[in-house]
Design a protein around this nucleic acid. Sequence first.
DNA 1: TAGATTGTTAATCGATTAACAATC
DNA 2: TAGATTGTTAATCGATTAACAATC
Lengths: 203, 203
Amino acid sequence: MKTSKQSILRLFQYRDFLIRLKNINTVNVFSDNLAKDIGTTSIQVRKDFSLFRLSGNKKAGYKVSNLLKQLDELLGKNKKQKVVIVGAGNIGKALMQYDGFYKEGLEIAALFDYDRRKYNHKNNPPVLPIEDLFKFVSSNNVKIGIIAVPCKAAQQVLDLMISAGIKGAMNFAPIPLKSPKNFYINNINLRVELESVVYYTQM
Amino acid sequence: MKTSKQSILRLFQYRDFLIRLKNINTVNVFSDNLAKDIGTTSIQVRKDFSLFRLSGNKKAGYKVSNLLKQLDELLGKNKKQKVVIVGAGNIGKALMQYDGFYKEGLEIAALFDYDRRKYNHKNNPPVLPIEDLFKFVSSNNVKIGIIAVPCKAAQQVLDLMISAGIKGAMNFAPIPLKSPKNFYINNINLRVELESVVYYTQM
DNA sequence: TAGATTGTTAATCGATTAACAATC
DNA sequence: TAGATTGTTAATCGATTAACAATC
């Protein structure tokens, strides 16, 4: 109960806003400013902070740099994290080039694919054959994977990741995958997300 | 209360599974099968169905084709929906080529971009100049948009969409956007999603 | 019938919101 | 001081889970 999934997600969003504030040299911020930005209420903001023992000053709000430092610590943003992507198709490439991963401590260490024509050892990050995944992951101590392959290959890729020592994954294949309890998987089903937009606009 | 966001999302997932079942000619399905597939409980499945007046047969479960037909009706899957994408970068192109949109009644009618070099009227869907968005959307009666542009252009694109008559959007720009109350916006922040995977694997 | 399954009502759980005391 | 803000405790709300009746 103490730490809910949703408040963690909001902490990341607050952090985003704080970074923007810091860039324009803002020193203080009120819970109400934070709330407005991410589209919630100031009560929710203070509640979230309360859960994680983040405190400000009555009347003066929160110090941007101080709060940011605490959030970085709390969210483990001080360590660099290596990530591998399996599937060098459109989604894989989009993520490879996604701005802002790197400065957030997320390093796309390599892409992997089944298709030989896509291999490119010289690229940064390199595009490697799927056979190299196991060795790469274990020798580079990678803990995070992204699955961007077609449905029929997804479970196989996940199993390979797990056996290689990966502990959490983001999955774009629109099919539920089986994983052990201690493995964290974040399913992103873009089709369902789009379908739900359609549904809500029709109501 | 009657219709919760989460149960709607699950209805789409049940539907996915039912389509797969239909393809392998399965006739009947139990709530427990549905639950296993999407990773929930049979109680939840029956509760969801109960909310939407979907019923089966005691002992015999649900008829796949019948249930599918009812879900299609409920979720408005019988009408084709046109969608426009603004931003012909990696994410835009990934979505353009995303398998399965079309057969789900989602038609990517056109992409729009600010960059002249990306224009391609001959492509299917065509890649058009952003100046054409307003006219295209209103004359084709498009109700759904996808925002796949950098942060600094996102709000401007959304405003343009709204003025052209779009009613709901999926937004990939990692920044909160302002929209009127009757406009539905689904924010997909891939960086935050990935960061949360990192967070949970570290615990 | 006995066993298995649906479907609804009630109970629980968790997250959000409200109320308000503390204090700068 | 008065006004504005934080931070915690209590109340509400919504979603999930449990219990159980109905019935094939």
